[in-house]
Design a protein around this nucleic acid. Sequence first.
DNA 1: CTTGGAATGTCAACAAGACTGACGTATTTT
DNA 2: AAAATACGTCAGTCTTGTTGACATTCCAAG
Lengths: 169, 169
Amino acid sequence: MAEGHAQNTSSGQALLYLTDEQLRQGIEAMFFAYRGFTADPDRILEGMSYGRAHHRAIHFIHCAPGTTVNNLLAILGVTKQSLNRVLRTLIEDGLVTSHIGRSDKRERHLTLTEAGEALEQQLSDAQRARMRDAYRKAGPEAVAGFKTVLEAMMDEDMRRAYLALRDGR
Amino acid sequence: MAEGHAQNTSSGQALLYLTDEQLRQGIEAMFFAYRGFTADPDRILEGMSYGRAHHRAIHFIHCAPGTTVNNLLAILGVTKQSLNRVLRTLIEDGLVTSHIGRSDKRERHLTLTEAGEALEQQLSDAQRARMRDAYRKAGPEAVAGFKTVLEAMMDEDMRRAYLALRDGR
DNA sequence: CTTGGAATGTCAACAAGACTGACGTATTTT
DNA sequence: AAAATACGTCAGTCTTGTTGACATTCCAAG
């Protein structure tokens, strides 16, 4: 019972979109939408012994070629051991290369090979196709609102990481 | 290379929000936001031997008291074996009750006990608090757009389930 | 220059939570 | 009476997260 209901504020009607019921709808929408969001890449990956974790690694290596393991760790928010298992298989299968750092030899710089880029294309084409359909149906104003809310929903650290990626391209 | 770039269409400028780069930003925003979205309940659950799976079950039993196992299965999109493991612990711990159906005795109707409702409150208060902050920062128009895009992103079946839940209250 | 601590990354073992497949039971439908 | 449905359970696998232990490399203080 942490907070009261949103409609019981001094502003009254203006805040009707903040009622518990509205918030609950938003929560469920996030749940169902995220399932759709990951469904297409999951389908592609299943049967090739990769999973969502591999997709995420491939995605961010594609976006920041030459990034280090530590960098990736911060973005993905998992332990280095967890990431390592995924990276190892990707390297073994020739989708990712790992080069020892020139200045700091402790670091490993990660890049997608041609085969890696090809898979990345396949995965992100599928995911973008769904995104594009959703965007097209919803229209530009809705898309702007969508992004505004998502940014506000992130943890502070993640928002920084997101904005850095967004503006660094 | 399934589709062309969105800007290369007959409509030209009007569809700039559909460029691959814009779509990629949306994809990353979803990823980071979903992490924030689940972070608070996850924190509460950790250490009490429950996880996100328990949270989801509790959430939907709360929304549809007396629902059957099969109903829950369809909404959550997991196998009955998977759900059963979760339900068993919740019932053992006295958070959920399972009653044999009155008309159809094969069915089990699931309801939250008082303790279950208490935990549900605790979890959804945390999640709603984050949602409320995000909504408040973004404003009502952004929230409307947010929901529009999310609905368009769901699979058809899930949209039906979502709308049924949304309108059935 | 050496040595100890911090940072980076690897290997091994384990747990949660998803999956499949097979089977049993009670009940309803045909 | 037979088939289908709803539910529970056992056993085994897979992905992906965790911790703990350890090797290598860098850097800075003595």
